[in-house]
Amino acid sequence: MATQKAFYFDASACNGCKACMIACKSKNALPVGVNFRRVLQYGGGAWVPDPEYPDFLQPSGLFAYSLSVACMHCQNAPCVNICPAKAIEKRDDGIVLVDEDKCIGCHYCEWACPYGAPQFDADKGTMIKCDFCVDLIDQGEAPYCVASCPMRALDFGELDELRAKYGTVSAVAPLPPADLTDPAFVMTPHRDAQPVGQGTGRIYDDEV
């Protein structure tokens, strides 16, 4: 039976520290500007006069949460489907890999992926992306990001097992709707999480 490796992320534990992001950069020797894993912060709300003391402003509906996002190794991966060079493949365990020998660096996958996972490596002239640390998991070890998290907010495993353990949520705002690509991803939403497509906030740190 086909299996599917997946990431788990606990937004109720993530304080946005980006240790996962930098651990990943260290593992993959990534240059500035290329990030296989990114942490973004989403939030919103307003400041309004206090009903009893109108001279005092109060936060109203204020919220913020962090999401740590890498390649979702989607079950219905648009990058695989769109690649004209057939350079992107799903392994038997569901991990999506770029074959750099075949890749022509056309960027189609980057544009097709709603998570922005594939990125261009100018030195190699090819697309590169999160490979789920296949070298490590093939030896029974954890992906670098998972092992790095000081908050223990990341986990990995078989998708069905993660779902049994953590539930079936795989998107909150501002992530794309899960039915687009069927991401191999399970998450615990933050207490203030907003539903996909109906978020009232904005991405605070749009830099990374």
Binding site: G33, A117, P174, G197, D206
Partner: peptide, 25 residues
């Protein structure tokens, strides 16, 4: 739209920073 914002946030970083590759390596 929210989704394209995400795309922007998640992808807007790749192309401009080539000069750094060398010493980054």
């Amino acid at each position: 739209s929210e989704q394209s914002l995400v795309m922007k946030a998640l992808t807007d970083v790749t192309l401009k920073r080539r000069s750094f590759l060398k010493w980054s390596a």
